[in-house]
Amino acid sequence: MASFTAVFLSSAFAACFAEVCTIPLDTAKVRLQLQKKTPPLSPAAAAGAGWAAGGGTLATIICIAREEGVAALWKGVVPGLHRQFLYGGLRIGLYEPVKAFFVGGAVVGDVSLLSKILAALTTGVLAIVVANPTDLVKVRLQADGKANTVKRSYSGALNAYSTIIRQEGIGALWTGLGPNVARNAIINAAELASYDQFKQMFLKLPGFTDNVFTHLLAGLGAGFLAVCIGSPVDVVKSRMMGDSTYRSTFDCFTKTLKNDGPGAFYKGFIANFCRIGSWNVIMFLTLEQVRRFFL
């Protein structure tokens, strides 16, 4: 059996590779989630606002690239890689041993969906408690160019970490931990447990083998479920991390509901699905190949 270090490193590599490929979609998603209802802007004002007012994913990406430069789409890539190395490596690397713990021994044959969900919830919580500071810095860097957020002007990821600690205290690195734990536990369960379940289900169907096509379908299914289930807590997490005026998770939730309506919790849904769907496909395809080659 492969060592935990080998499994952790292969998981971290797959997660980091998927992050680099999909972070422009994540930047667009964060900008869309941070949008709040405002008086209508004139076309000229909207053009200079640094985001696509009322626009969708593609419009937001084009507007960010035009107003802030193409490199702005990769804002947050460094803490994003920090996050995926820690969070991706831990949540995926711990999944099999934690699943074995819940079933009471070595995993042999089919495992119940409940055991898979419990294992994924557990590893999602453990991993994000460690990785929350990297998530906070990533969101702040991605939000920094938006017109109606606080301009912090961090020069980079390391500068952001040090500035937050100096100005807000080390505890501020765990801002948004509540919704982040909820979001990542839920999404991790939706991703890992559903990928595991979809793959198990497909392999029982005639004509399906443990190949790239099966991994692709299972990854798409996992990504879609993750977005449907996790979007509301993802929006609250992004808003709390991007705007420090919220007093708590409940405060952010109620203000978002009151000021922007229920639809706000699915803002950036298309960007989120493009991001998480493609992220899952790339990550699981990479992970399966890396594990097959090295482990």
Rank of each mutant, 00 (worst) to 15 (best):
K37F: 08
K37W: 14
K37N: 13
K37M: 09
K37Q: 10
K37R: 15
T38C: 05
T38F: 03
T38D: 08
T38E: 14
P39Q: 10
P39M: 09
P40Q: 06
P40C: 05
P40I: 01
P40D: 13
L41D: 04
L41R: 14
L41T: 06
S42L: 11
S42V: 07
S42G: 15
S42A: 13
S42R: 14
P43W: 05
A44E: 15
A45D: 13
A45W: 02
A45Q: 13
A46P: 02
A46Y: 02
G48E: 14
G48L: 06
G48A: 07
A49E: 10
A49W: 12
A49R: 10
A49T: 05
A49F: 04
G50F: 08
W51G: 02
W51Y: 15
W51L: 09
W51H: 11
A52R: 00
A52E: 00
A53D: 04
A53V: 10
A53G: 04
A53C: 06
A53K: 04
G54D: 06
G55P: 01
G55L: 04
G56V: 01
G56D: 03
T57D: 09
L58F: 15
L58V: 12
L58I: 12
A59V: 03
A59N: 06
T60S: 06
T60P: 03
T60G: 01
T60C: 10
I61M: 15
I61P: 00
I61R: 05
I61C: 10
I61F: 04
I61L: 15
I62N: 10
I62M: 14
C63M: 07
C63D: 08
I64Q: 00
R66F: 09
E67P: 01
E67N: 08
E67W: 05
E67V: 13
E68T: 07
E68P: 02
V70F: 14
V70Y: 13
A71I: 07
A71N: 14
A71T: 11
A71F: 13
A71C: 07
A72L: 08
A72I: 12
A72F: 12
A72E: 14
A72V: 11
L73F: 11
L73P: 00
L73W: 00
W74R: 03
K75C: 08
K75F: 09
K75W: 13
G76E: 01
G76I: 03
G76V: 02
V77E: 00
V77D: 00
V77P: 00
V77S: 01
V78W: 10
V78T: 12
P79N: 08
G80M: 05
G80C: 02
L81G: 00
L81S: 01
L81P: 00
